[in-house]
């Protein structure tokens, strides 16, 4: 079994060594994506002018360049096209090998190449269903005035539908 989001920082946080994105509003304008993740929702931005649904979420539409965007829900269950299991070269923080990835058809929205957790080696196969899995990752110690505040964070992978 792989373990999501293991700390390798041992109390010495460095942004240049961080596996995961900055998620606070001071460092990211797509903060709602992570807030929705906490609710189990997988979202992106939709353009109110041309209807495009770019992923990753944006502050500007890459099709018509409008800034009028709204958050919409995308499916949280997809179908596995194929699976890879990485036994050598797994980066620190991604658990013990194998690190499993799958190419997942998210109901026609996009074909995502994503990490699969809560899954044994050899368990997942083409045609299986996987669903969004959200987990806590290392918080970021962020300066707020003269204080250092721990900013909690989440990230996502997918897991087999059992």
């Amino acid at each position: 079994m792989s373990t999501p989001g293991i700390s390798i920082l041992e109390g010495k946080y460095m942004v240049t060594m961080d596996l995961f994105p900055q998620q606070s509003k001071e460092f990211n304008q797509v903060t709602p994506f992570y807030e929705f993740l906490r609710e189990g929702r997988f979202t992106t931005t939709k353009c109110k002018d041309c209807g495009a649904e770019p992923f990753p979420p944006r502050v500007m539409c890459p099709e018509c360049y409008s800034s009028a965007l709204e958050w919409i829900d995308w499916p949280t269950v997809g179908t596995v096209i194929d699976v890879t299991e990485e036994s050598v070269g797994v980066p620190l923080g991604f658990g013990k090998p194998p690190l499993i990835h799958a190419l997942v058809d998210l109901q026609g929205k996009r074909t995502f190449f994503v990490r699969i957790i809560n899954c044994a080696a050899g368990e997942l196969k083409s045609g299986d269903q996987v669903k969004l899995a959200v987990f806590d990752v290392d918080p970021v110690p962020q300066e707020v005035g003269r204080e250092v505040v721990q900013i909690p964070r989440v990230f996502y992978a997918f897991e087999p539908v059992k």
């Binding site: 596996l19 994105p21 990753p56 890879t84 923080g93 990835h101 190449f113 994503v114 990230f155 992978a157």
Partner: peptide, 23 residues
């Protein structure tokens, strides 16, 4: 893309090219 693919552990390229080879 650090914020989206990096967080999936897709730094070293073998998983991506293994998927290419499989397909």
């Amino acid at each position: 893309d650090h914020d989206w693919d990096g967080g999936q552990g897709l730094g070293l390229p073998p998983p991506a090219f293994a998927m290419v080879a499989k397909q």
